[in-house]
């Protein structure tokens, strides 16, 4: 069994006053270990909702969500939290670093929650990751002293510090310019190849999409198809978007 995420017939409904909004209408999909998978789709198609369910920060209305072989519906709040801590890393669109902590402390935080490593081991681990994202010289800075791209690199380091099996990123580049966005995706890709960490990220930018092994196309709360990155980019371009000079196939 190599599926790290397995979703079957998942429905997610939101109650908006008296009306019920179906954000996901029967989604099924499997993600294999080591994948670098993109979730694409127009605004409102359910990308964030899907990632939240996989990330165990929200629960499905119906259907089965299995992460790392565990049926998340059967876990207690405490067990879900432990699953998030030990198995999943998060990269957020708006970075979500703790403003009162230094970069070092932000990255160290999940390790403190885990209580597995001693101070020296934690230090080595954090510094190694900060070096990998190119910010070891800024370890004592606060997030407010950094650019958006730098902050997102810290977030990448924080997501990876616990060596999670799975990293989820909801539009990690949406708040960055395209060059910086590309650097973040390159960084994620490198870590994916070096460590074999599974990445699932959402985007509606085809330049970002093209780095993925595969793309899940969502529309209107449903999976349209699972395609290769090339096909996904071609599809996006066929919708009338002009090809960009720096776009690589």
């Amino acid at each position: 069994m190599n599926a790290i995420v397995s979703i079957r017939d998942v429905v997610k409904e939101y109650q908006l006053g008296t009306t019920v909004v179906q954000a996901l209408r029967g989604v099924s999909l499997e993600v294999q270990k080591g994948e670098f998978l993109s979730i694409a789709g127009p605004s409102g198609s359910g990308k964030t909702t899907l990632l939240n369910l996989i990330g165990c920060v929200d629960t499905a209305t119906r259907g089965v969500v299995e992460v790392a072989g565990k049926d998340t519906a059967k876990l207690s709040e405490r067990e879900l939290t432990d699953l998030r801590l030990n198995t999943i890393g998060f990269i957020f669109q708006s970075f979500n670093l703790v403003s009162v902590l230094t970069l070092f402390q932000n990255v160290e935080f999940p390790l403190l929650l885990q209580r597995k490593l001693g101070a020296k081991e934690r230090r080595d681990k954090v510094m190694q990751l900060l070096e990998q994202v190119g910010l070891h010289t800024h370890a004592k800075h606060r997030p407010s002293e950094l650019s958006g791209g730098q902050r997102q690199r810290v977030a990448v380091a924080r997501a990876l510090v616990t060596d999670p099996l799975l990293v989820l990123a909801d539009e990690p580049t949406a708040n960055l310019d395209s060059t910086t966005g590309n650097q973040i995706i390159d960084l994620m890709k490198t870590l994916n190849q070096q460590k074999g960490t599974t990445f699932i990220f959402s985007t509606h930018d085809h330049k970002v999409m093209q780095h993925a092994n595969a793309v899940i196309r969502l529309a209107d709360g449903k999976v349209l198809e699972r395609v290769s990155a090339r096909e996904a980019v071609e599809h996006a371009l066929s919708l009338g978007e002009a090809p960009q000079a720096e776009a690589r196939a």
Binding site: G55, T81, R84, F90, F92, N96, S99, L113, Q114
Partner: peptide, 11 residues
């Protein structure tokens, strides 16, 4: 911030 910390794995 609370949401983030909870997502990251704080009980």
């Amino acid at each position: 911030e609370i949401g983030t910390l909870r997502a990251v794995g704080m009980q």
